[in-house]
């Protein structure tokens, strides 16, 4: 990584909302063509890291070094999208060209660019469809298409597989892997340790602070996971890959008013 070209680096970044610090003294660097996953529990500051990388949230302390002219695109969680908003696939994707043209309608060059990016993602025939009339995988592709239309060097993704089934998770992961192989640097945040995180080349374990960073084999250890999630986990190995298992201890506590042995 030291020999690679750095796109963005957070150095000792502390920031938050109001007086509460969400990130404390965070160091994260992303190099060209890297594929980094940020994992951590809810409230760990994963989205805030993306926001700082994107430049839409300034740090209270520390600094952010960003390569001059770096093009960053952000793909939100599809669960946060207002699916009733009246936009067709083409209108949605064209939002990426917000600054390139004053006129409301798309130029011929823009229409060609939209067609190309939609064709690349296999959804060109859906361009006139409303965004709600698509399957989960197609919806995810629309927002990736919007990001790609801006020709980014760094793609930020917020929980790309949140609330999706196994088939769609594989579909999204293969798509991102393909984009990364073509040279796009990707940073995604996920809570899905086995489905996503273990398949990525590099992970950052975050819980307000960076707990560990490295390959899945290096960082997915019971000790790091307990420090990150505050819960006991075991790490097994399957086919050369780590598999994280919750260590759920059954505690038989007597509930007030419920007789012992009864099904409460």
């Amino acid at each position: 990584m030291s020999a690679s070209v750095e796109l963005v680096a957070l150095e000792g970044v502390t920031c938050g909302y109001g007086s509460e610090a969400v990130l404390v003294d965070v160091d994260v660097a992303v190099a060209k063509r890297e594929f980094v996953g940020i994992v951590g529990p809810s409230g760990a500051g994963k989205t805030t890291v993306l926001r700082v990388i994107a430049g839409s949230m300034p740090p209270a302390h520390g600094r952010v070094r960003r390569r001059a002219g770096l093009r960053v695109a952000y793909v939100p969680q599809i669960e946060t999208i207002n699916w009733s908003f009246p936009v067709t696939v083409q209108e949605c994707v064209l939002m990426a060209r917000v600054s390139s043209r004053r006129l409301p309608w798309a130029s011929r060059v823009e229409r060609v660019a939209v067609s190309e990016v939609l064709a690349r993602l296999g959804i060109e025939e859906l361009r006139e469809r409303h965004i709600r009339e698509l399957s989960g995988g197609q919806q995810q592709r629309v927002f990736i298409a919007r990001a790609l239309l801006g020709e980014p060097e760094l793609l930020l993704m917020d929980e790309p597989t949140s609330g999706v089934d196994v088939r769609l998770r594989h579909e999204v992961l293969h798509l991102l892997d393909d984009l990364n192989a073509r040279g796009l640097a990707i940073v995604l945040m996920t809570h899905d340790l086995n489905g996503i995180a273990t398949h990525l080349p590099r992970l950052v374990c975050l819980n307000r602070r960076v707990i560990a960073t490295g390959s899945p084999a290096e960082v997915l250890s019971p000790e790091v996971l307990e420090r990150t999630y505050g819960a006991s986990m075991q790490v097994l190995e399957h086919g050369g890959m780590p598999v994280v298992v919750d260590t759920f201890e059954h505690r038989h506590e007597h509930l007030p008013g419920v007789p012992e042995g009864s099904a409460a």
């Binding site: 839409s56 960053v72 936009v87 917000v98 409301p104 930020l156």
Partner: peptide, 23 residues
């Protein structure tokens, strides 16, 4: 509205990403 159509649409639909995209 004509001149700021794109920025207004982006802001109305997806303010967080619009903000991150420089709007």
């Amino acid at each position: 509205i004509f001149l700021r159509y794109r920025a207004l649409l982006f802001t109305t639909f997806d303010p967080e990403v619009a903000d991150a995209s420089g709007v």
